[in-house]
Structure formats: C-alpha cells, structure tokens
Design a protein around this nucleic acid. Structure first.
Ligand SMILES: [Mn+2]
Ligand SMILES: [Mn+2]
Ligand SMILES: [Mn+2]
Ligand SMILES: [Mn+2]
Lengths: 138, 138
DNA sequence: CAAGAAATATAGCAATGGCTATAAATCAAC
DNA sequence: GTTGATTTATAGCCATTGCTATATTTCTTG
C-alpha cells in the first residue's frame, strides 16, 4: 500500500465514465460513416452495422437526441447535429491514430482493428498527443 | 464501403463483450491486492477502493461468486477461488504491461496509469504479446 | 455480558442497454 | 390508388450497475 492509494477510486471512476460515453461515440462515428457512404443513416442500417436489434438502435438514437448529438424525424433518417458531427470527426481521427499506434508497435493489422474499437474510448487527449508524437518521430 | 464491412458488427460485439468482463477483472485484481496487502478483503475496503457505495460492492461480489471467481461467508471477508486468483494474476500483469507500453511511447506516467485502467480490458492476447515484444526490443 | 458502534446484508429505486413481439407508417408494384 | 412488403416505433421483458435507506449481524468497550 503506497501513499497514492487514494487515487485508485478516481481511476476506476474515470474508466466507468469513459465506458458510459463509449456507446455514444461509436454510434456517432458510425452514423457519420453511413451518411458519408450512403447519403443518409437509416435505423435499419445503423442496427445492422452496430450488430444489434433494430429497437436497440432506436433506443440508442433516442439517447443521442437527448444529449444533443443527433436529430431524427419519425420514419425518416437520422442526422448529426453540429456537435454530433464534430464529435464523430474527433472520434474517427482518434480511432485511426489508435490503430496506427498499435500497428507501429507490432500488433497485426486485423487484431489492431479489433482491439482499437474498445481501446479508443479510454485514450485521453494527452495519450492521443503522445501517440501522434511517437508516430511522427519514427 | 469496403468489402470487409461485414466485420464491423463483430468488432462492436467484441468490444461490448470486453466491457462486460471489465468489471469482473477490476474487482478480482483489486481483491487480490487487498488480500496481499491486508491479509483479507472486507466489503468496506473493496467498496472504498472501487469508489462505489457498499451495497454496490456487495452486488458485484455476488456476481463474482456466481461466476466462480470468489467465495464469501456472510459478514466475513471475500476470498478468491483458484480461478479467481489466476485471473487476478493475469489481469495484474497485463495492467502493468499496458502502463509500460504507454510510457514507452511517451505517455506521462500519471496519465498512463489513468488510461490503462480502461484500456487494459480491450488488449487481446495477441496485442499483449506485441506490447511485450516491443518493450523487450527497445 | 450488555450496550452501542461498526460492518454487512437486504430492499427497493433508477438508468442503461440488450431482447422479442407487435403496431403503425412508409414505400413499391400493380 | 390499393395492397402487400418493408421499415420504424412502441410496449414490455430481463440483466447489469449504480444509488439510498434500513435491517441485521458482528465487534468493541465498559
Ligand atoms: Mn469504439
Ligand atoms: Mn471506433
Ligand atoms: Mn481496469
Ligand atoms: Mn487494472
């Protein structure tokens, strides 16, 4: 038991908080991808790409709306707010950086893609900056 | 839309699965720490270190018991099964490797400690092996 | 060994994120 | 423009993980 043990609970709390935001980040990034690829994001496509049932996607979209990240008209597609689109861009860039960092330290491409989907949500701005610095300085 | 888009849902599913195991891993590692430090793991200490209310810890311990990772006699301490102790050891080693890897690529020590708490649960065996290889070959 | 204090368990609530079944709306095809 | 197919919304279920309030058990102290 060292003298900085009081920091441990905050560390766990931070990880829990990141976890609660992770789902929002993945949906927003993915909805942005759909709009870029198909011109629109339909509930069915969101559910399929997310690997969940359609009502599960609908419920998640409700949360995105409530948090000001998306809008949706019933029976029409889903759209990102400016805040949602900004978040999507940051999340997408971070995702790519995490994959690149993993590959750079020797993780096989496919494995890097898999692990990055979870890892990305726990990479802070400072860590992201360090990753970018490392990638540049090789 | 590339031709491997069908892999995306499985990627998200994997991240969800890792998330559901994360809490078990953190509790088991932490209970192992308490036993090593104090000779026993009391519910109050588990709750305090986890940063949650005492009934929340009790409920988590119920899940550990149900999954065969821990045992507990009412009003007495919590103990790890052999399986639980093995998991704790693996999780602790992985945690340390993740912190070392982060520091090795330039993440400040304190930030590495914080981010590792969440990242660790999404680091697969292959990625862990790559991290170890990278750390050795510097 | 009897209180009172401390620790633990239990009850019950809320939010989240899954699911299936089904109602309602939209779209397509005739 | 009806009708049948498709898509979306809604209802209602369950498990998980938080919480507070309170009952119960154990520990400590006089
Ligand atoms: Mn992700
Ligand atoms: Mn991602
Ligand atoms: Mn952790
Ligand atoms: Mn850990």
């Amino acid at each position: 038991m060292t003298e900085m043990d009081g920091q441990v609970p905050e560390r766990f709390a931070r990880a829990r908080e990141a976890q609660s935001v992770a789902l929002l980040e993945d949906y927003v990034e993915m909805i942005g991808d759909l709009i870029a690829e198909l011109g629109e994001a339909r509930v069915a496509d969101i559910a399929e790409r997310m690997g969940v049932a359609q009502p599960t996607a609908t419920k998640a979209i409700s949360r995105l709306k409530r948090e000001g990240l998306a809008t949706a008209r019933p029976y029409r597609g889903v759209f990102l707010t400016e805040e949602g689109a900004d978040l999507a861009d940051r999340v997408r860039a971070r995702h790519r950086t995490v994959v690149e960092l993993l590959v750079a330290v020797g993780v096989p491409e496919g494995v890097a893609e898999l692990d990055a989907e979870g890892i990305e949500h726990h990479v802070s701005d400072e860590t992201l900056a360090a990753f970018e610095g490392f990638l540049k300085s090789r």
